[in-house]
């Protein structure tokens, strides 16, 4: 198996990259290569041009500014895994990252690549959905941001134009003391999840839920924010019964079946895993008046 012939471009700046993307026909962007390279090797994709983003240094960074965390699209998954900022301020992302592939793939794989590949069961899009991240996009026409809720257009397809490049994402981290958990079921560690759940809980001084987020993956075409479950949690005491009711509601999600798991089984997993994620998030949260 070998990649088909293509012309290779390795621009040194974003300006050059967007200019190439705007002018070349049938071009593919190469980020960490952990999804595109297998597809090239198997010739599932046959681009005439490959635009390698790896030389653009300005796209790899993890920054905290004005109560926001900004992450460049070309930031390696492993650099996020080992980032103190991410570990302290966004434990959800770290727990998810440890379930993304293996060390060898995280060393190369990028967060922007995961978002754009948009596998329905991929961990990082679920995290971005739970965090309500903004996705930053650039083209020769300028830059824009779109909320993660609008990012998936349909199956494995982000809602960006053919001449646009995802340059990064930004989000407001949850407050100090919040509880986070990422739980998934996969056939083998490192595989894409069959179903995964991201949960975030913020508790007040009395142990009531000030704010909750539940994102489900592996059920629909992209990550699903489960607002029905969030509404059952909002303002309630974080008891086992409350969490169980919210988790059970996840069984109502519209799921697609495939060769790996039926729709019924995916709904079942969504309920079970949401229960685990919510209990872990609650147990990790501190009550903050």
């Amino acid at each position: 198996m070998k990649p088909p012939p293509f012309r290779y471009h390795d621009p040194g700046s974003l300006d050059e990259a967007v200019a190439l993307l705007a002018t070349l026909e049938n071009a593919k962007l190469l980020a960490g290569g952990q999804s595109l390279m297998p597809m090239l090797n198997m010739r599932f994709v046959q681009p005439d041009h490959v635009i390698d983003l790896n030389r653009i240094t300005g796209l790899a960074h993890i920054r905290e500014s004005a109560a926001r965390i900004e992450i460049g699209a070309m930031t390696r998954q492993r650099d996020l895994e080992f980032s103190d900022l991410i570990r302290c301020r966004c434990p959800l992302m770290r727990e998810a990252l440890l379930q993304v592939g293996h060390r060898q793939t995280r060393n190369r794989g990028t967060i922007g690549g995961s978002l754009c590949h948009l596998d329905p069961a991929a961990e990082l899009p679920m995290v971005a959905a739970a965090l309500e991240a903004d996705i930053q996009v650039a083209s020769r026409r300028g830059t824009r941001t779109l909320p993660m809720a609008d990012f998936p257009a349909f199956y494995m397809t982000p809602a960006i134009e053919p001449d646009e490049i995802v340059t990064g994402l930004g989000f407001t981290p949850w407050p100090e003391g919040h509880g986070a958990a990422f739980v998934e079921f996969a056939r083998r560690p490192g595989d894409f999840a069959v179903v995964g759940v991201a949960a975030l809980l913020d508790l007040d001084g009395a142990g009531c839920i000030r704010r909750a987020a539940i994102a489900l993956g592996g059920v629909g075409q992209g990550p699903v924010r489960w607002s029905r479950g969030e509404d059952l949690l909002q303002g309630e005491a974080a008891t086992d019964d409350t969490l169980r009711a919210a988790a059970e509601s996840c069984r109502g999600v519209a799921a697609m079946g495939d060769a790996q798991a039926s729709a019924d089984y995916r709904r079942h997993l969504a309920g079970v895993l949401a229960g685990r994620a919510l209990r872990a998030a609650r147990d990790r949260a501190r009550r903050v008046p």
Binding site: D10, M37, D52, N54, N107, R108
Partner: peptide, 19 residues
């Protein structure tokens, strides 16, 4: 196919030699 690239493990079937 795992090799170390600048000290970090990587699958060499998923990298182009030019990279």
């Amino acid at each position: 196919c795992t090799v170390l690239v600048d000290g970090r493990s990587a699958r060499s079937c998923l990298m182009l030699a030019v990279q």
